[in-house]
Amino acid sequence: MRSDRAATVLLIVVLLALVALPAVAGKYYVQLATKILIMAVFAMSLDLLVGYAGLVSLGHAAFFGFGAYLVALAAPQYQAANFWTSLPLAVGGAALLAAAIGFFAVRTQGVYFIMVTLAFAQMVYYVFHDTKIAGGSDGIFIDVRPDTALFGWTPFDLANFVHLYFVVLAVFVAAYLVLRVVLASPFGRVVQGIRVNEHRMKSLGFPTFRYKLVAFTIAGAVAGLAGYFGAVQYGAVNPEMLGWHLSGSVLMMVILGGMGTLAGAVIGAAAFLLLELVFQGLSEHWQLLMGTTIVLVALFLPNGIAGLAWPLQRGRSG
C-alpha cells in the first residue's frame, strides 16, 4: 500500500535523525529523547492491550514500576546490579506479575476490567508504599548504574548519557519490531479479532481467555522493560512509578497518538512529554492546558495524531 511505503520512509528518516541526535544536540535534549523513547516503549506495550486487544487497562504502571523496582532490588546496597541478569529479572518479574493479575483481570469485561486493573495496581502501589521492602514512600536510590561488564569487557556504560541513549534507542527499535511481528502473527490476528468481536471468536473455536492472558502478560513484560530503563535513567525508584497517575498518563499518550497503531503510541508519548514541557513553561496551571488538549484531540481527532497521517489504518499495521 502507498501509505505503508510512506510510513516506512518516514520511519527511516526518524530513525536516522535519532541516531544523529547526540552529535548535534546537548545533554538536555539527549536525556529528553531518552525519556521519550522509554515512554514510547511503555506506551506501545499499553497499545497492544488498548488498541489491539481492546483491553483498556488503567493499571499498566504496575508493571513499569515493578520492572523499575527490580533494578533497585537487584543491586546490593551502594553497588551496581549486573545488567545482564537484572534486565531479564525485571522483564520476567513484570511478566509474572502481569500473568498473575491478568489471570483475574481478563475474565472481566469493559468497565469492570478498568476497575480490576486499577485495583490490582493500587494494591501493588501500597505494597511498595507502606512496607519496608523497598524504602517505603521514599523509594530507593540507585547509587550505581547496572554494570554491563561481560567477561571483563564493558561494552557500554549506562552512567554515560550518550551510551544510555543509544542502548534505549536500540531497545525501542527492538520492541517496535518485535511487536510488529507479533501483531502480524496468528496470535496477533486472534488478539485483534477479540477486540472486534470476542463472541464470534469464541464461536469460531478460540479459547479467548488464553489469548487475552498471553497478550496481557506480553504487555506487562514490555512495560517492565521500559520501567527498567526508566529506573536506570532516573537513578531512583519510588512508588509513583507504580501509581495510577502514571497509568493514566500512559493511557493518555496512547489516545493522544492514536490507538491501534504502534506509531501512534510513539507519537503520543513524544507529544505528551513535549506538550507537558511547553505547558509547564507557560503556566503553573499546565495540567489545565494538558487536559484541554486531550479533550480537543478526543473530540476532533478520534484516531489520534497518527490518524492525521494514516486515517484508515487502525488495527491493520504498525
Binding site: 511481528v181 507479533v182 502480524a184 502473527s185 496468528p186 496470535f187 490476528r189 486472534v190 479479532g193 489469548y211
Partner: peptide, 20 residues
Amino acid sequence: ARIAAQSRLASSLRFFRPAT
C-alpha cells in the same frame, strides 16, 4: 474467512511468522 480457518490450528499461540 482466514481467521475462521485459522481456528483449526492446534493452537494460535504462534508469535513470529506472519499469519498470512
